[in-house]
Amino acid sequence: MDAKINEQVKNKKQDNLITAEIRYKMTAKGMMITEYYGADTCVVLPDEIEGETVTALDDYAFARNLEVEEIWLPEALKEVGRYAFYRCKNLKKLILGNQLLDMGGGALTGCRLEEVEIYFREGKKSCLKSIVEETRYQIRVSLYGYSWRCCAEKNSTDEWLREVRILFPEHYEEAVENTPARILETHHHGAGGYYRQCFYNRELDYKKYDEMFYHTVAEDTEETAVELALNRLRFPEELSEKNKNVYKTYIREHMETVAAYLVKREDIEGIRFLEQKKLWSEPALQTGMDVAAEGNRTESLSVLMDVRKELFPKKKKTFEL
């Protein structure tokens, strides 16, 4: 299992240019990258340097780098130093393995991270909790790992790459003055704070995560709730039948928003998923086609027309003599 994940990650890295613009040193814990001094927007850090596995990223290694937008960390990284990405204002995406279990204090201070990809070699622990706790903004997370499934042939098994997509909504606090009482009150906004508590022993607690959905419905935008619900239905890791029905009910009741969301992102797989689950309504399909036509999204428009033809075929007119 580890070998297959390593091969997949290495193949993806080969499609990118691994940076040479780094400084490093050997430590008692392994090879450490001490500084990145380049100006690329996408930085792919090496897994090995001089035959030694890279296991650490030093304090302030990327600090104040205003160019970098995406960083692919070494696959066997186990330590990220304090303020490693301090004030990397344009950093939007991190890609890493799950041997890293914690980020150093203030590692993401001054960043506005939007996406995280984590590749799991073994177990379910990762540094995801550490990442989302440092970021108040909305974060889209993709988790990858291998699972076993039974093949049609007796006593035969196969491995397949499992993907899970998870959304962590935004949250922030606001100090509001209570003039009569002469005190400052802290007001909390957004459901993201609840979701950031859905971890146990560095593992994401999916059951607790799903139980927070009513907070999203009450405190976030309709589009945020739609995206979160769609993610859980499409990638139902540890999703109970009860919570599946909650998400499905919400999607059914907000299908026009769902249609606009999928078309704007040209998410053809999402459109087909709802067709497979027979969740489309004719008004929602019409909304989607209108949005697609206005935005000149021809592929989405074509697919939606096919879905309407398949799910809601027109009845042939008959004439009696």
Rank of each mutant, 00 (worst) to 15 (best):
L304T: 08
Y60N: 07
K314R: 12
K4D: 04
K278Y: 01
L274V: 02
L262E: 03
C151R: 12
K124Q: 11
N201H: 06
W280C: 02
F168M: 08
R234Q: 15
E177P: 00
K10H: 14
G38Y: 03
R232P: 13
I18M: 03
G193P: 00
N65K: 13
E256A: 13
G104F: 08
L239A: 12
T298K: 11
Y36W: 05
Y200L: 02
G38K: 11
R23C: 05
N6F: 14
A293Y: 13
E275V: 02
G270I: 07
R112M: 10
V44D: 06
L100R: 07
T257D: 01
K264L: 12
Y250W: 09
R252V: 04
F273W: 13
Y250I: 10
A28Q: 13
R165C: 10
I271W: 04
C127R: 13
E69S: 05
L301F: 14
F120V: 06
Y60A: 04
N201D: 09
E299K: 10
T27P: 03
Y37L: 01
F85H: 14
K248D: 00
N243W: 14
E7H: 11
Y195P: 03
F85P: 04
L66H: 08
I139L: 06
T157F: 07
E7Q: 15
D220S: 11
K13I: 12
W72F: 14
V68A: 05
R232F: 09
V141W: 09
E222R: 15
N178K: 06
D210Q: 06
Y214P: 01
K278C: 05
L108T: 05
N201R: 12
R272V: 00
V9G: 03
L304D: 01
E238A: 14
Q286C: 01
R196I: 07
I33R: 02
A284P: 04
A181P: 00
V9L: 14
E114G: 10
R64G: 00
L96C: 14
A152Q: 14
M103A: 08
F235S: 04
A61S: 11
A293V: 02
K242E: 15
V307H: 01
F199W: 02
E299M: 09
V246L: 11
Y83P: 00
G81H: 02
E223P: 02
L311H: 01
F168W: 07
T257N: 12
E133W: 06
P236R: 03
I49Y: 13
D290A: 08
E163G: 03
E253F: 04
R121T: 12
I131A: 10
R308I: 00
E320H: 06
K248Q: 15
T186V: 14
K93N: 04
V307C: 05
L108W: 05
Y86K: 07
R265A: 13
C198A: 13
L304M: 10
Y83W: 04
V54L: 12
E238L: 11
G192Q: 01
A225C: 12
D102F: 07
V176C: 05
K92I: 10
N231F: 15
E227P: 08
Q14P: 00
V176A: 10
D220T: 09
V226G: 03
K317R: 11
H215L: 13
W148Q: 08
K315Y: 00
V43H: 08
E79W: 08
